[in-house]
Write a protein that binds this DNA or RNA. Structure first.
Lengths: 115, 115
DNA sequence: CGGGATCCATTAAGATACTG
DNA sequence: CAGTATCTTAATGGATCCCG
């Protein structure tokens, strides 16, 4: 994170802005979290885990995560349909970050908020 | 991240949902990022770094980060006013996560998105 | 300079019904 | 089951003016 001037400090085209663009959206990190915990999750199963999300938002988020290469969509051509989502290699490489966030939250959620 | 059932899988009141609630909002992580990089940043200076943000959103985000104990607002009662923001201890403890995100992004932004 | 207040625009997200 | 389509609502952000 070496920055010497305001010009260099601009976030455009940095790795940081890149990762932010991938995990924006209310439920994306949550989706990744469940895929980390359960490895393979079906559409309606994910909907049950995150019951606040709507079909539309879930569907859109999964599509974006897939096109960003973070998750894999595996469709079984059968009746009734079956679609499984799992982490792609890129997504798996995010696990340490997700776990660090989880641990940070566990540790700090009970801590007093004062400085 | 041990989860054995759907019931336990619900995110309410977990550390993970807690940290998500702190860093939601389009620019909060970015603000923390700049405070990590520059230690002490004034209001308009921050506005210049993140030039896409509006005064209102920046102001609101800083206030929320402050009330969540992540940053410290230091006001100098002078004319013209001067207000400096810096990371609180809680905020500093997030630095490893921010750096991990940064590194992940740097490494993956150029990588092909294919599986 | 560092905001607050107000009003407006844009975007994200939700509800519901429907389909292969 | 795994979505899509449509419509509606909520959340977020932006522009502008103002003040100590």
């Amino acid at each position: 994170m070496n920055m010497d001037s305001i010009e260099q400090a601009k976030l455009e085209n940095t790795g940081f802005s890149y990762i932010l663009s991938l995990i924006n959206g209310k439920y994306k990190i949550t989706i990744l979290y469940y895929l980390t915990a359960f490895d393979v999750v079906r559409f309606n199963e994910m909907k049950r885990y995150i019951d606040a999300v709507s079909f539309k938002t879930l569907s859109l988020s999964l599509k974006e995560l897939e096109s960003d290469g973070l998750i894999i969509r595996n469709e079984y051509p059968q009746i009734p349909p079956k679609v499984e989502y799992s982490l792609a290699a890129r997504g798996k490489s995010l696990i340490p970050i997700l776990e660090a966030m989880c641990e940070w939250g566990e540790f700090h959620k009970t801590t007093a908020r004062e400085m």
